[in-house]
Amino acid sequence: MGHGPEIPEHLAEYFGHDKVAHRGRGGLPAAPPAPPGSTARKAGENAVADGLARAGTPGRRPGDHPAALAPKPALSRVMRSGGETALMQASQRRFGTVTGAPAPHGSAGWFWRSVFAPVYSAIPWSIKKRMVTMTSGVKGWRKG
C-alpha cells in the first residue's frame, strides 16, 4: 500500500497491509454471523432491537456511567502511585529524546520528583527489589 509523503519511509515499512490491520473497511467479507436459530443469534438480535429502540431516549440504564472516582486510598496505594508516577515520568523524559517525544506532563509532585526518584535510582537493584516486593508485592503466592 502506498503512503503519503508525510510518513517517513523508515516508519512506513512497519505498516501492515489492508487485510491485517483492518484498513479494508468494506473491502473484506465479514465473518459469518452465528447460525440462524442459535442462542447466540437470538441474544444478539434481541440486544440490537432493544438497543436501537432505546437509542436517543432519556432514562438511566445499566452501565451507562461506568466510571468512578478512586475511593480514598490506603497509604500503600498512595506511596506506590506517587513513586510509580515520578519514576515513569523520569524514564519517559530520558527515552523520549530517541523519537523527539514531548516531555510528559508532570504531576507527580515535588517530593516524588526531586527527593524520591533520585534517591531510589541510587539504590542497587538487589535492595530495590526487596523494597518493592515488601511494599507492593503479594502474599500467599509461590515464587514465579
Binding site: 452465528a34 442462542t39 447466540a40 441474544a43 444478539g44 438480535e45
Partner: peptide, 21 residues
Amino acid sequence: PYVLGREIPDFERLFLAGPEN
C-alpha cells in the same frame, strides 16, 4: 470498538451464546 469503527458490520456478531445456554 470494531463495530463502532465499522470493520465489523453489526453488534449481533459479538454474541457467543444466549442466556439459555
